[in-house]
């Protein structure tokens, strides 16, 4: 039985009145790639942020194998958020070095690891460039290098291939599999089933803040009695998907009222359309 690296026990996350995640129980084992699959607003990013210790659970616990809360052990993690979060006025290497220093890793160790992975990702020549002009693929690869440079035990990737061209997406997926082969653990959020099936050892389907299924692709097919993962996914998520929950509490009451005051009513028929508006 592989070692449990990260566990979520009865985790609930509320944003104001909205329950974004409902009693999540999940264990992440050493050496596996776990795919978090769900539609937009399902709760994947919220779950990843809980695992990264950015969010605190409303109820339940997120802890590492040693029983310590994850927010105290972030040096164990390497995170690539959906937005990549690169500083455009720094070079790729400076971005990587900054995060490594924050992890307490020396520049020489960080450089050695960066150089190794940069070869795989064909990024070595770009390390000295400012990230301002980087394509989406280069940004994603740099963020991946940054997450790997300090030698994390667990890698959290939020939609790592979103917006990437085919070649870049293949390179990223290949690197993820290589990391797993070298004993690393990866949590891989995506809304593409085919990608999850291609990359992940285990797929966790999240819908409306709940885990609807958790298992290998074969186990999901047999438990749902379907012939492919798409059918399995549809059968597990028949209820209508909700909108993104974090958006709900973004605007204050006064701001919301003021905005509505200057927003014309949307017409319900052609007759109501005001051409002069």
């Amino acid at each position: 039985m592989p070692e449990t690296l990260l566990s979520l026990r009865g985790v609930t996350k509320n944003f104001a009145e909205v329950e974004a995640l409902k009693r999540i129980d999940l264990e992440i084992h050493s050496g596996e790639i776990v795919g978090l699959v769900g539609s937009n607003g399902a709760g994947k990013t919220t779950l990843l942020r809980l695992m990264a210790g950015v969010y605190t659970p409303s109820n339940g616990r997120v802890e590492l194998s040693n029983g310590r809360p994850v927010e105290e052990m972030r040096q164990e993690l390497g995170v690539v958020p959906e937005s990549t979060g690169l500083y455009s006025r720094l070079t790729a290497w400076e971005n990587i070095r900054y995060h490594s220093r924050m992890h307490g890793v020396s520049d020489s160790v960080s450089w050695a690891r960066t150089e190794k992975f940069a070869e795989h990702l064909d990024m070595k020549d770009n390390l000295s460039r400012h990230t301002k002009g980087f394509s989406r693929g280069m940004r994603q690869k740099t963020a991946l290098l940054r997450a790997l440079a300090h030698g994390p035990n667990i890698l959290l990737l939020d939609e790592p291939t979103a917006g990437l061209d085919i070649t870049s997406a293949r390179t990223v997926r290949a690197l993820v599999r290589q990391l797993r082969d070298e004993g690393g653990t990866v949590i891989y959020s995506t809304h593409q089933l085919a990608e999850a099936q291609q990359v992940c050892d285990r797929i966790v389907i999240i819908h409306n803040g709940e885990i609807r299924a958790d298992g290998s692709p074969g186990e999901l097919l047999s438990s749902t009695g379907t012939e492919n993962l798409e059918e399995a996914y549809v059968s597990l998520t028949l209820d209508q998907a909700r909108p993104r929950q974090e958006e709900a509490d973004k605007e204050g009451a006064l701001s919301s009222w003021w905005r509505r005051l200057f927003t014309p009513r949307t017409p319900v028929s052609t007759r109501e359309v005001n051409e002069d508006e």
Partner: peptide, 13 residues
């Protein structure tokens, strides 16, 4: 706004 804060908040600080 630039989305760089999330990566920063994931660091051990």
């Amino acid at each position: 706004e630039r989305g760089t804060l999330e990566a920063l908040l994931c660091l051990p600080c």
